[in-house]
Write a protein that binds this DNA or RNA. Structure first.
Lengths: 253, 253
DNA sequence: GGCTGGCGTTTGGTCCGACCATATGTTAGC
DNA sequence: GCTAACATATGGTCGGACCAAACGCCAGCC
């Protein structure tokens, strides 16, 4: 029994469960608990730290809420080092609350336009030949899916995903995934025809052409046009949230 | 007693506490519980929903972890609608885990350079006269703080903050706050002289001049130079995390 | 011998009742 | 009228009990 060695500081002022959670977090960060390892059982921990099971449970719950642990009934909790996607996932439910407020969805979408415009510019300046080919492939797949809503949406997202992947920073694909998840709810259940698909595909094509032509300004403008058009088409689906005031994503030009 | 009306679905499959949490969340989202309102007492809720106090507590804890409730000992929990800052705050502790891994800090900083470069470009294209004046004021305050580490850092952050504020999207200032919080730990306790301050101020000045001159390309390049220089100066402070492979933020030019 | 089924063990999920610590409101005493 | 002690409300902790899902072991069957 390592009880004495791992005793909690008795003078800690906060909740016991916080102290336990911190102790566990230190163990994880220090590497005593590797990713995939199973945590000691609740009843063991309560002996080890000299607290009740309630405190242990609340600590485990807190870490699970932060994505550091994965709990299943009947299983010991599993240590689960979070990646950027999980990190953004955790904040996802909060975003759900934020977007209900005035302009919430627009703010979110505007940030996407802003970020993605910068990505398009970057791609036009720095994309390697392989990147361009990948983009071309995604564009072609998108073209073939015209008229089939579900596959079109998937290839649509895949095309944009390439843009997020090109800079090589693992944070960006996670951001993209977050945008897709948070925004997709707002144009679900939309009946649309192949003409809309064609419009979007044309937008993708213009973006691709500008990037392939190494034209940053053109790439950014094409992307802004594409996303703004998509927004204009879709914003009728939620009457409660309008663009309202705010600068146009296309600028004053 | 409204017990019957608010009974939980008995056929719910997950944990009881999750069901309670969801019920509370719906009440918050529906506006039955306004921001600042106090939640019913735990003992009331356990009667209302017909579950034990443990379940109620775990539900409250989960919502508190997500930032929807603010709990104090002896007080009833207070409903606390999260803003973007809180949302990003919640994900903050996770980032602490992420940056310890290889290139973690660099990935984070690179994303900041990327985002802020786009902000500089935007400012050069769209900043209003008031925005420019605000930027000029921040620059001047920064100049006056040269040689005084703490005030200089503050005015430094304030200068950059103006860039995040100019587009008018409330998400961006929250992102800036997050960057500052996450990255500041990595160049804390750095002894530096006024010459370093002068270098950073010169960087700010170059950014301001380009924005004031309505030169997007120049603004972006000045900002990249400034941040990359700051990075190069600071990265010696943590030997375990290097830039490693990855494209230069200045491009191949 | 190998697969399969059942049974006991482990372990998380829930409940109950009690007590403690802190904050607030109330009242008795000066 | 002000202050201090008391009562009340409320979250935090505890210990024990039981339930349900998952796992592991072992016997029995093909």
């Amino acid at each position: 029994m390592v009880r004495d060695a791992e005793l909690l500081a008795k003078d800690s002022i906060g909740r016991r469960s916080d102290a336990v959670a911190e102790a566990l977090m230190r163990m994880i960060q220090a590497g005593d608990l590797q990713e995939g390892d199973r945590l000691p059982a609740e009843r063991d921990l309560m002996l080890r730290y000299g607290v009740s099971r309630s405190a242990v449970r609340e600590a485990i719950l807190a870490l699970a809420n932060r994505g550091l642990l994965l709990t299943r009934l009947g299983h010991r909790p599993i240590v689960c080092k979070p990646d950027y996607e999980i990190a953004i996932d955790r904040v996802g439910n909060l975003v759900g609350h934020l977007v209900v407020e005035r302009n919430g969805v627009w703010n979110l979408f505007e940030s996407r336009i802003f970020f993605e415009a910068a990505l398009a510019r970057w791609a036009a300046s720095h994309a390697k030949r392989d990147d361009i080919e990948e983009l071309r492939g995604a564009l072609e797949a998108n073209r073939l899916a015209i008229g089939h809503s579900l596959p079109f949406d998937e290839t649509d997202a895949a095309f944009h995903a390439v843009l997020y992947r090109i800079p090589g920073n693992p944070i960006y694909p996670a951001v993209h995934k977050a945008y897709v998840e948070w925004l997709v709810q707002h144009w679900r259940s939309m009946k649309r025809g192949a003409d809309i698909d064609r419009m979007n595909h044309a937008g993708h094509e213009a973006i691709f052409e500008a990037i392939a032509a190494r034209d940053p300004d053109g790439a950014e403008e094409a992307l802004r046009r594409h996303l703004v058009a998509a927004w204009e088409f879709v914003r009728s689906t939620f009457a409660s949230d309008r663009r309202g005031r705010g600068q146009s994503p296309l600028g004053e030009a």
